[in-house]
Design a protein around this nucleic acid. Sequence first.
RNA 1: GGUGAGUUACUCAAGCGGCCAACGAGGGCAGACUGUAAAUCUGCUGACUAUGUCUUCGAAGGUUCGAAUCCUUCACUCACCA
Length: 410
Amino acid sequence: MLIAIKQKRGLMIQKALGEIKRGTSEIIDLEYIEKLVTRYYTEGKTYTVKVGFDPTGADLHLGHTVLLHKLKIFQKHGATVQLIIGDFTATIGDPTGKSETRKVMDRDTIIANAKTYQDQAFLILDRDKTEIFYNSVWFDKLGAAGLVGLSTLFSVARMLERDDFEKRYKAGQSISISEFLYPLLQGYDSVELKSDIEIGGTDQKFNLLMGRHLQRSYNIKKEQAVITMPILEGLDGVQKMSKSLDNYIGITENPNTIYAKVLSISDTLMWRYYELLSTKTLDEIALLKKGVEDGSIHPKIVKENLAIELVARFYNEELANIAKEEFDKVFKSNEVPSEMSEFIFETPIWICKALVDANIEPSTSQARRDIAQGAIKINQEKLVDDQLQLENGEYIVQVGKRKFAKIKVL
RNA sequence: GGUGAGUUACUCAAGCGGCCAACGAGGGCAGACUGUAAAUCUGCUGACUAUGUCUUCGAAGGUUCGAAUCCUUCACUCACCA
């Protein structure tokens, strides 16, 4: 009897570890994680997983969800998530992956961003198993002396080993001292919170390891395990998904937009998204891939399914299917979307001006160029005359394939 | 602190007194082909009811009929020296 329970427990732990390992890029000190998970399943003891973020951009996108889903898995297996709002560190700016010094942010925007971040993070995370910390709490106390003390624990040479610093240094670009401080401060968070595990993107590896280094230096009896997750590429398939590059899919964007954006990614990138975002098992994904390769499944179908899965995750099945129908309507049958923004003008208006006012062209100059190239359609018909005045009536104007607006002239 | 080099559009990068709204590459947008995919080919890529006008080459002044180009000051970046 006892043996049976033990065996069952062992299986559960193995399963948990399997889920934890899936899709990770690297795990440092897996043994420690095993120990923590085992202890949870045998003694019911919880442990902590730390994650930090810079409250720089207000909206979360799919790239963030890669991490959040991993955290959710941890919560399922006994972890308490320590969510650190880097309100202090954000005033410095994380140099990671940056080719130049980042601009510092003012405090009000940071706080506002932090709030929306939390609201959105809890779409995925379990609120009851999450603790939120603002790192200004301990950094305000640390003081100049503390900061100097902290900075004696690491050498410039080692700091310069870091890939992005090294590149910038060699390329003759500037690196400010505050940027050297950033990894130290992030690591110090782990000292304050005595975290058991820290998780971040692969580009965060250096900073994450700093946590281990500092925990050792400050004699916290343990060193955190480190997990890095792959970085999700943005819509272009090359650069990291980010708001500033405008290659992201935001989780609060409307279902139609999410659906359309997923469908616009390349076939190669699609597999990457499957791997990192889908809840399908790796075997199922491999099967799909094989199907596409031998021609038995059309890649478009596979992509559609991914889009539906993702929309359904942030909304529901029903809206996901509506998004698909809408998409097919507009792009397969070349019809007009059922909803679009509407603009009303009191008097007849020059077409170029109307396009600008309807926010689908940035300038009348651009509008003229697009007309010359045949990119503008009015009521489904190509427009040739760039002097056209819109008289009374209702018009559906279209720029390129995806920008629509309804214009009414009274 | 000293010496030298540099700062050009979204990015890289030419231009070094008029032919400059500024070569070229990447990116982006659009058209053709498609599955709004990729690849490929083509066009566009400062603004303005526009064969013209206005504003842009780190900032401010100056020289000149005329300045991204020459001069002065300032700011920033880098290298070497201290």
